[in-house]
Structure formats: structure tokens, C-alpha cells
Simulated assay, not measured.
Amino acid sequence: MPFLPSRDREYLESKGFVYQEIVDGSQKGLIFPAFRLPANKYDVLQADVLILLPAGYPDTPPDMFYLQPWVKLAAQSRYPKAADQRFAFNGASWQRWSRHNNEWRSGVDGIWTMLKRVEHALEVAA
């Protein structure tokens, strides 16, 4: 059953994003399959990205994001900082990226904001 707000759905469709809306117990998540990672930064070229939508979304911000498969920084062959914990969702073990959001603007921000945060975190990870 779809749960994504219509303005988020319209944005994702207008940008050509492929995504799945998954309910796992009481959690609602968006999975973006085969999300391209920054070139030459990680030990894989793409990964599935999971964004959990909290109760109260879009007024309440998404917090962290998760990758599957787990990725390592290619140059150091290690997990990025604050990206080494397991999170179970939809029968899989996801790599939790602890990146907190303190700047969410209720009524302004949406899934586009969170996707930009994911892209930025992947670019600057050390």
C-alpha cells in the first residue's frame, strides 16, 4: 500500500527515480535500487539505498540512511566513519549511515531534501 505523500511521489517520478515503498512491521521505508555511488570512492559502483520515513513525515524528518550491500572506502578498505552498524529491514542486513538531520524545514522539505543529504554524505565520507 503506497504511503509516500503525493508531492514526494510527483518529484521522484519527474526525476525518473526508481523506488519501492516497503512496510516492515511498523516501519515504512523507501528503497532506491542500484543507486549510483561516487566514482572511485567505494568498493562497489552502486548500492540500494533505504530511507526510513518516521511517523509524522513529512513534518518529522527522516534521520539516517542505509545501504545494501555494505560498502567500504576503496582507498582505505574500511567502512566510513559512523557507517559500521547493522540494521535489519525487510529481511536484509543494511549498513547504517548515522547522519542526523537538524535542519529540516517542516512544510518545505521533502524526499528531495533527504536524497540530497544522502548524495552529500556519500561524497564527503571519510
Rank of each mutant, 00 (worst) to 15 (best):
P2Q: 10
L4G: 07
L4H: 08
L4P: 06
P5K: 05
P5N: 11
S6G: 02
E10K: 14
E13L: 06
K15V: 07
F17I: 11
F17A: 11
Y19P: 08
Q20H: 06
E21A: 07
E21Q: 12
I22F: 00
I22W: 00
V23K: 05
D24P: 13
Q27L: 14
K28G: 11
L30D: 07
L30P: 12
I31D: 04
F32E: 07
P33H: 11
P33K: 03
F35E: 13
R36F: 02
L37W: 10
L37C: 10
P38S: 12
P38Q: 06
A39P: 09
A39E: 13
Y42I: 07
D43C: 04
D43G: 07
D43N: 15
Q46A: 15
A47D: 00
D48P: 05
D48H: 03
V49D: 00
L50Q: 05
L50I: 11
I51C: 01
I51P: 06
L53N: 07
L53F: 01
A55M: 01
G56T: 13
P58Q: 04
P58E: 00
T60Q: 03
P62Q: 02
D63Q: 04
D63R: 01
F65S: 05
Y66D: 01
L67N: 05
Q68T: 09
P69K: 02
P69N: 03
W70H: 09
W70K: 08
V71S: 04
V71G: 10
V71W: 02
V71L: 10
K72T: 12
K72L: 10
K72M: 01
Q76M: 09
Q76D: 06
R78Y: 02
P80W: 12
D84A: 12
D84W: 01
D84S: 14
Q85V: 10
F87T: 13
F87E: 14
F87N: 11
A88R: 14
A88F: 11
F89S: 08
N90F: 08
N90T: 08
G91D: 07
A92S: 03
A92T: 07
Q95N: 06
R96W: 00
S98N: 14
R99I: 15
H100P: 04
N101M: 04
N101Q: 13
N102Q: 03
W104P: 14
R105C: 05
S106D: 03
G107A: 00
V108I: 13
V108T: 12
D109S: 04
W112R: 15
E119C: 09
A121G: 15
A121P: 08
A121F: 02
L122F: 02
E123Y: 10
E123P: 09
A126E: 15
A126Q: 10
